[in-house]
Simulated scan of single mutants.
Amino acid sequence: MNREWTGVKCIVTGGASFIGSHLVEELVRRRAKVTVIDDLSNGKMENLSTVRSLIDFSEGDLKSRDFALRSCTDGEVLFHLAADHGGRGYISTHPASCASNMALDNTVFDAAVQNGVKQIIFTSSACVYPTDIQEERQLLVEEMVDFNTRGGAFADEEYGWAKLMGELSLKAYNKQYGVGAVSCRLSTAYGPRESESHAIIALIAKAFIQQSPFEVWGNGEQSRGFTYVDDIVSGIILAAENITDGSAVNVGTSDYVTINQITEEVFKCFGWRPKEGLKHLNDRPVGVRHRALDGSFAQKRCGWTPKVSLEEGVRQTIEWYVENRDVDTVRAELENLLMMR
């Protein structure tokens, strides 16, 4: 169904973040009444510059029970995007930070229910899927994670386990309190406002400074279902409109695209190639070998399919990056940027 969002009171945790800010803009465009909650540890107020006068904003740490109870009020629908996360470099080197999401999620869910929120949309991750089935190219289907079967869960590092526990916790709140709920399993989102710790922005940054030899983590044959942020946002909203029973739904493309293919697309968009070629760094963290999502359930239940092609998405992302970054600054800070949130 297509919900009428005009006047709906929406709370967006992590709303100043990459995906969160795009979601806030779309909700505002649909005339929802939006409150953003963010501690700005990763999010930026500049991400909300186009809608700042049209939203309410509250800054604070949602792991604090008192703050969560005070801030998650006067909302009908809560989109929970706040999380401690980053790209593969960050996830691999900050396991305790990523594990803290378990405390964050439960605090937010409890505060929302106590304050009478009617529906919670949780941004989960494709990292919840068992890692051992991602050595070969097989599309990941929601049922591959099964809480009722022994051995039905084998998530990807601490970040994946935390997201999986968030899904389980949200289902518990749905069962006990009747709050509407859905978990959106996002897959390798990219687009404007994303940080250099994620694959596509990292490659764009290296081309932006004309790095040569051009460094690629791993052998470059690892593949992902890269999904443009506008498609991610539309999938989250459609999930909110159509699923309330606590189910999980994939929001990501089914196209396997390798890092080497992305690299070539970035070179093509810049009209540039490194004179010294590529340098593959096999000692850097790369995650699972292949990951892309089956979108059949999302299409059937929500009517969602991704619409932005990889070529168009990369082009738009590069345009944003070039307009908003300084070559000398990126060159000086790149190594740190690749490992940060």
Rank of each mutant, 00 (worst) to 15 (best):
A181P: 05
S71Y: 03
D38H: 07
V28K: 09
R137H: 11
L23V: 00
D132F: 13
V8S: 05
G246C: 05
A126H: 02
E333M: 15
G87S: 10
A189Y: 00
N324C: 07
P213T: 09
E276L: 10
I11C: 08
I19F: 04
S17T: 09
G89F: 13
Y228D: 00
S296I: 00
T123Q: 00
Q176T: 02
I201L: 12
I237K: 03
M165E: 14
K307Q: 14
V108A: 03
G43C: 13
I243H: 15
W304K: 07
F226M: 03
G180Y: 12
S71A: 14
S197M: 08
C302L: 02
Y190Q: 02
P306R: 12
T258A: 05
I318S: 06
A153T: 12
L310S: 06
D110L: 05
W320E: 11
G295L: 03
R301T: 02
R30S: 01
F267N: 09
R341H: 05
V108R: 05
I19D: 00
A298C: 00
C184E: 06
Y321T: 13
S92Y: 15
A153N: 03
D245V: 04
D283T: 03
A83W: 04
I204G: 10
A103F: 01
P192N: 06
V36M: 10
E276V: 00
E167P: 11
D84L: 08
F57K: 04
G303Y: 06
A199D: 11
D56T: 01
L62E: 07
N260L: 11
I236A: 00
R185E: 03
A99H: 04
I120Q: 02
K9Q: 10
G7Q: 01
E26M: 06
R150T: 01
E221G: 01
A205Y: 14
E264S: 14
S21N: 07
R273N: 13
N324S: 08
L310T: 07
S124W: 04
S247T: 05
N260R: 08
G20W: 07
A298W: 00
D146H: 12
E76M: 09
K33M: 01
D283G: 04
G246V: 05
V330C: 14
G180F: 13
L337F: 13
G277A: 01
I204H: 12
F208H: 10
R52E: 04
D328E: 15
Y90H: 12
Q119M: 09
T93M: 10
P274H: 15
A172G: 11
Y321M: 13
V117N: 10
L168V: 03
I259W: 07
Q138W: 06
G218A: 04
A172Y: 10
R289Y: 09
Y228N: 01
G252R: 07
S92F: 15
V308L: 08
I236L: 10
E333R: 15
V77P: 08
R88D: 04
A239K: 09
F214I: 10
E136I: 11
V128A: 03
H80K: 05
G7K: 03
A68V: 04
F122L: 05
A332W: 14
E135I: 06
H280N: 06
A240F: 12
S183A: 15
I11N: 07
L281T: 02
S183G: 08
M144Y: 15
V233Q: 02
E335M: 07
